[in-house]
Write a protein that binds this DNA or RNA. Structure first.
Lengths: 233, 233
DNA sequence: CGTTTTTTTGAGTACCCTCAACAACGGTGG
DNA sequence: CCACCGTTGTTGAGGGTACTCAAAAAAACG
């Protein structure tokens, strides 16, 4: 059950730090962070980083690879609540009850940094900036989910997929990757489960975007041809 | 613009404290809380407690009455993201950017306690329990929104309304009100805007529940006749 | 008490779902 | 390297749920 843990490279020298952490940390604060985030964990494609009802111990930050998070209903219905790429946090839902509420599954072989919550909490009590950062992370997750509710509650299937692609593109761009061309690690079914529609509908919408010259999908490889057009959908 | 602020009755003697705050606060912590939560604000039916893009200064707790929160899209589309009743928090979305992301509108003449965020943050750095409580509040909001995504993404209109009624009932019960009979302060349109459907559909589903002997709606007054039946829908 | 807003109900329609068949892809072993 | 097979993705036809438009009834408000 317990996956191998390995020494993490340090936050203080991590290339993802700008995505993960506030920009104005003092070197003392960075040093403290290095003593908290000591290990990483590898999760293989399809395996769970954590499952619903697991005891909550740590927050995680995606280091390499990608994940999906999903919530399950008693009756087996699933809703994907997000996809996480490097630099993005995982596990914030567990603080509430001390148990994870969703599960996080790796979409490919991936690595996460482990942030033991108890220690991190202590650090936050000492550092105003770290404290503020954690609040902002959590609040940001609330805002992100609000806009997903908007998407699910008010948009057509076509608009949902367009929003999804533009959002992903923007996040890749933030990390220095191309926003115009990227690889979808998730299946059509997983996209559908995220956007509240069936996989056939996802596929049809991709075909429509292709026909209309908005994107060039070739399987999982996506090229966004006309971002403005997508935004207008 | 600025609404009248009045002296709040103290947290230490507030009957909603059990809903609002952790149960294990020391009397010293309660005393400190009294010095932070000094004022209340009245908001009249239809007026905004805050709007999107307002500077974020304070968290709020509903004291009397009720609110809806909603996010707006550029094109004017609205999504109601929640309804808040006494004891529930408002404004957690503002921490992320320092600006409110949604707007909070009173559904009836209402009162809120004002919790200046800067001061509260300081208090949280001193008190481990208060800090933990704020994390739990924010995480709880994340969990709440996840289950709304599940609702919007996977359920039929009938199931959504059933879930909505059962959720409301449970929240009223927590506050010592009847969970079997209550007054909906929000319109059919607002319910629809929350549940991702049109007001006509909301009305039809109420009629269906009435026909099936699950609830007795008479306008805004709702009586839940068969809670188990509702859960099975 | 009249006016406005909200709610209910009906009829017709559009969007997305279901079911189904086929194509493409990716990994495995001969 | 290619044949094989399971998985994933695409496309079509038909149907159902929820939407739109519309009108009447009920409730809320001043």
């Amino acid at each position: 059950m317990a996956a191998p843990r390995r020494a993490a490279s340090r936050c203080s020298t991590c290339s993802l730090r700008a995505v993960c952490m506030p920009s104005d940390l003092t070197s003392a604060e960075l040093q403290q962070l290095d003593t908290v985030v000591l290990t990483t964990r590898h999760v293989r494609r399809g395996e769970a980083l954590f499952r619903a009802h697991d005891a909550f111990q740590s927050l995680y930050a995606v280091r390499t690879g990608s994940f999906k998070t999903l919530v399950m209903h008693r009756d087996g219905r699933e809703q994907v609540t997000g996809f996480q790429i490097p630099g993005e946090p995982l596990g914030l839902d567990g603080v509430c009850t001390g148990m994870h509420n969703c599960e996080a599954i790796a979409l490919e072989d991936s690595t996460v940094c482990i942030i033991p919550f108890g220690q991190f909490e202590s650090l936050c009590r000492e550092s105003r900036r770290m404290q503020r950062h954690l609040y902002q992370l959590m609040s940001g997750e609330i805002v992100r989910e609000s806009s997903l509710m908007m998407l699910l509650g008010t948009m057509s299937a076509e608009q949902r997929l367009a929003s999804f692609l533009l959002d992903l593109a923007a996040r890749f761009r933030t990390r220095g990757y191309s926003g115009a061309q990227f690889n979808l690690k998730m299946s059509r079914e997983e996209i559908g489960c995220f956007l509240g529609m069936k996989l056939e509908t996802v596929s049809r919408m991709f075909s429509r975007f292709h026909r209309d010259g908005l994107v060039q999908p070739s399987g999982k490889q996506i090229r966004i041809v006309d971002a403005e057009g997508l935004a207008r959908v």
